[in-house]
Design a protein around this nucleic acid. Structure first.
Lengths: 109, 109
DNA sequence: TCAGCTATTCAGTATTGCTATATACCAGTA
DNA sequence: TACTGGTATATAGCAATACTGAATAGCTGA
């Protein structure tokens, strides 16, 4: 996928994961697989787990341990009220950035 | 401006600065002032200089020292062929990311 | 028993933006 | 002269975040 994406993901991957969780609860392995499916071809395994630990520690998600038929128990994360608020702010920040970049892109033509 | 923007800028600020330079040559102080004017209210002074040093070292820009009437000489940067190529790639990466996020935003409603 | 998929965790590294500070040139002014 | 303030660049150390690589663990089927 390349270094450019890696650096761009800093700050946005968190929003991406929270946005996924806003749709439905999910666990790390599942999220990673989904991201890869969506074209984030080489999201590192450990990256999503580390991110989930961070957002949990900051109180943006709730966690529930659920047994799996196929392996060790899953840690299922769901977005809570504080997380939804944070996600709202993320979208506002994202909009700000996209607007500025769109202007630059237009201007550069 | 907040921490969210700071993290999101990692990886995009470089593209932003290169996009500015694709329009016209510019120097650090000028770029910082312009960014602040555009709403990146607390871009740190040193940040742009450090970034310019990096892109210069990677051969994406050409530099010319130009005397100033108002202070020490300016280092005027301009995007070269390699930089234009890199900027193209940046836009492709950016498009990829915005598409994915737009989908997520739609889906989350 | 072993390979392979599912599932999580963690130590160490690289990149990048911020903080804080230093340096330097020039004009106006007390 | 000395000082303030705007212009202009540079850099050392810090913080946040994604990646690398490896370890651990449960389950299924050959």
């Amino acid at each position: 996928m390349g270094k450019q994406v890696t650096e761009m993901l800093k700050g946005t991957l968190e929003g991406i994961v929270l946005a996924i969780l806003s749709g439905r609860p999910a666990y790390g392995y599942e999220i990673t697989a989904w991201l890869r499916d969506q074209g984030f071809s080489d999201i590192a395994e450990g990256t999503v787990y580390a991110l989930l630990v961070r957002v949990e520690r900051r109180g943006l998600v709730d966690v529930e341990k659920v047994p799996s038929e196929k392996g060790p128990p899953r840690k299922v994360y769901s977005l809570n009220a504080q997380g939804r608020e944070y996600l709202e702010e993320f979208w506002r920040t994202w909009s700000f950035l996209t607007e500025r970049l769109e202007q630059l892109r237009e201007g550069g033509k």
